[in-house]
Computed example of a mutant assay.
Amino acid sequence: MIRIVLADDQAVVRDGLSMLLGAADDLDVVATAPDGTAAVEAVLAAAPDVALVDLRMPGLDGAQVTEAVRRQAPDVRVLVLTTYADDDAVLPALRAGAAGYLTKDTTGEALCAAIRTVAAGGSVLDAAVQARLVALAGTPTPRPEIPEGLTAREVDTLRLVAEGLSNQQVASRLFVSEATVKTHVNHLISKLAVDGRPALVAWAWRHGVTG
Rank of each mutant, 00 (worst) to 15 (best):
L52P: 01
G100A: 07
A119N: 08
A120C: 01
A33W: 02
A85P: 08
V170Q: 06
M19N: 13
A99R: 02
T103V: 15
A193D: 15
A114W: 09
D9G: 06
A47R: 15
L111T: 06
L160T: 02
L20H: 12
G97W: 11
V29K: 09
A63W: 03
P140R: 09
L52C: 01
E109W: 02
G196C: 10
S166F: 01
V13K: 03
P140T: 08
D54F: 07
L200M: 04
A45F: 09
A113M: 02
P144D: 13
R206N: 07
L111P: 05
S18V: 06
L20R: 13
A11L: 13
L17N: 07
L17Y: 04
L55A: 03
L52H: 00
E154K: 13
A68M: 00
A179L: 11
D195Y: 13
T157A: 13
R56Q: 13
I189H: 01
P147E: 09
M57G: 06
T106V: 12
Q72G: 12
V176E: 04
D35A: 10
Y101H: 13
P140W: 14
L91W: 14
A68W: 01
H187M: 10
D88G: 04
A11F: 11
M1W: 07
D35I: 09
A47Y: 10
A99G: 04
P34G: 10
V43C: 05
R159M: 10
H187Q: 13
V176F: 06
Q64G: 13
A114Y: 04
V181D: 12
A47W: 07
